[in-house]
Amino acid sequence: MLTVSSIQRFCLRDGPGIRTVVFLQGCPLRCWWCHNPEMRPREHPAASHWETARLVDELERDLRYWRWSRGGVTFSGGEPLAQAGGLAEVLVALGSRGHHRAVETSGAAEPEAVRLLAPLVDLWLWDVKAVDPDAFREATGGDSSLPLGNLGWLLGRTDARVVVRLALVRGFNDGGEAGRIARWLASQPRRVPVEVLEGHDLAGGKSRDARPGRSARPERGAVEAALAALREAGLEAR
């Protein structure tokens, strides 16, 4: 059983090909720039509950487009790892039917969640926010050791395909923090590609934690600087 905030079809930026993205309800972090604050609580009036078989049927409506585009399903959120048990069941079902499975996560979850899901995920889209524990806590309310530990384990102990996503947020990780992230990633047992994204203000203050007058859009030149730092550290970045 999964608690789903919404299902979005024909998504092109959350893994390869044409994808159906399942936004799972619930997230332990409280990022002030969050675009989907309604997905934070474990339950929400707009959320729905799905048995595995019914969810797979629903997702497979777009099967023909996954096949022709080498796409598949991406679980996002919210924080998918927060529903690791239910998610594992759905991933098994999708995998047994030959579908490509991606999970987009911040990694902020207990290590058991990642260990449970690792063999079931074809592609991790790992949203690395910060390495510095204080900066991480200040911006997200969470503990950075969990996501970093989880990613470190995944890179050290498995051959899971991982793409790191670095969303630059003004005054948080668009300056020196990007360099620290680059060095941290470069020091891991294996190196994975990094996609640099720009934080933006789409949520327009719908979050409780939104900071009035504060923009998430990174400083001019921050993307280029982050790309340079990542490449300098020997990482493939775009």
């Binding site: 092109l12 090909g17 044409i18 023909r64 487009y65 096949r67 022709w68 585009s69 796409g71």
Partner: peptide, 10 residues
């Protein structure tokens, strides 16, 4: 690629 996939699938 997406245009092609939509056409082929349909």
């Amino acid at each position: 690629e997406v245009v092609l996939a939509l056409i082929e699938a349909f």
